[in-house]
Amino acid sequence: MNNLVSQPEIILASSSQTRKDLMDRLGLVYRCVSPEIDESPRGEIHADDLAKRLAFEKAKVISNQFPNAIVLGSDQVAWREGAPDIFMGKPLTVENAIKQLQANSDHFVYFSTALSVQQQSTCFEHTIVEHYKVKFRTLSLAEIERYVERDQPLHCAGSFKCESLGISLFEQMIGQDQTTLMGMPMIQLCAILRKLKLHIP
């Protein structure tokens, strides 16, 4: 007798390859739909508030289109110690990446990473913010230039890829879940998906 119950579709509201790689760890069937939202700040005075709003909006936009699906939205905002109101965006150019890493040298950089899981048909919505911080070692200009050339972190807040050569830039990594630094807190995601009766593992 077949007791399998049809599982809702899972949609990752993102086009990020890093988030896709994180999702692939779970062995779940899912698809990606990129949310088209304006990610500009709207007067937020703390990185937590901006990350939380953007994660919620990403999931909401896709959930409106696919109300029966379980939709996952995530966003990350980086900021230097003592300045949670000054948001560190994606550098987009080599010049900006070099400047950002020069400013990060010998400083703590914090990451506010928000996750929003929504299923409109069941009125389920759970949005959280997790934190992680890294201490950059003192970096020479030559080291920074070599790093940017090799890793091309132009679409990464903070101008590094911790899953790649970016690990060489740090003195310390501090937090409960390293995937928070990578852009989606997977320990929390697994806990939320279990609330939705998904088997993980």
Rank of each mutant, 00 (worst) to 15 (best):
C162V: 15
P67N: 10
L101C: 12
D151A: 12
A83N: 12
A69L: 05
I98C: 09
G82Q: 15
H131V: 13
A142Y: 04
V61P: 00
V134Q: 02
I37M: 00
P91D: 03
S40P: 02
V129R: 00
N104E: 06
V148I: 13
D106R: 14
L115H: 09
F108S: 06
R31I: 11
A83V: 06
K135V: 07
E44N: 03
K99H: 12
V71L: 01
K58L: 00
G158Y: 01
Q152C: 08
L92D: 05
A51M: 02
E143F: 07
L28G: 11
I37W: 00
L154R: 04
Q120D: 14
I86A: 05
I144K: 04
L154D: 03
Q100F: 15
S116W: 02
G89S: 15
V77I: 15
H46A: 13
R150Y: 10
K161F: 06
L72M: 03
R137D: 11
A55M: 02
F124Q: 11
S121F: 03
S74T: 01
V71M: 02
Q76T: 04
A51R: 00
H131I: 08
E57T: 00
E44T: 07
V33K: 02
K161S: 07
Y147A: 07
F66C: 09
Q120P: 07
S159R: 08
E81D: 14
T127V: 13
A51T: 01
E143P: 12
N96P: 08
R80S: 06
L54Y: 00
H131Q: 10
H126L: 12
S116F: 01
L165T: 13
G158W: 01
Y147F: 05
G82R: 11
S159W: 05
Y110K: 08
I70V: 15
V148W: 07
G43Y: 14
K58M: 01
F66I: 11
A157T: 14
E145D: 15
V77E: 05
S116Q: 04
R137S: 09
D151S: 10
Q152E: 13
L165V: 10
K60M: 05
Y132R: 02
Q118D: 03
K90L: 01
A55V: 02
R137L: 09
H155G: 02
A142P: 01
Y110C: 12
Q120F: 11
H107A: 10
Y132I: 10
Q100K: 10
K99R: 08
I128V: 15
V33A: 04
D151P: 09
S34H: 06
Q152H: 08
L54I: 00
V71P: 06
D75A: 03
G43C: 14
M88L: 14
A97P: 06
E36C: 01
S34C: 08
R150C: 10
V94E: 13
A103Q: 08
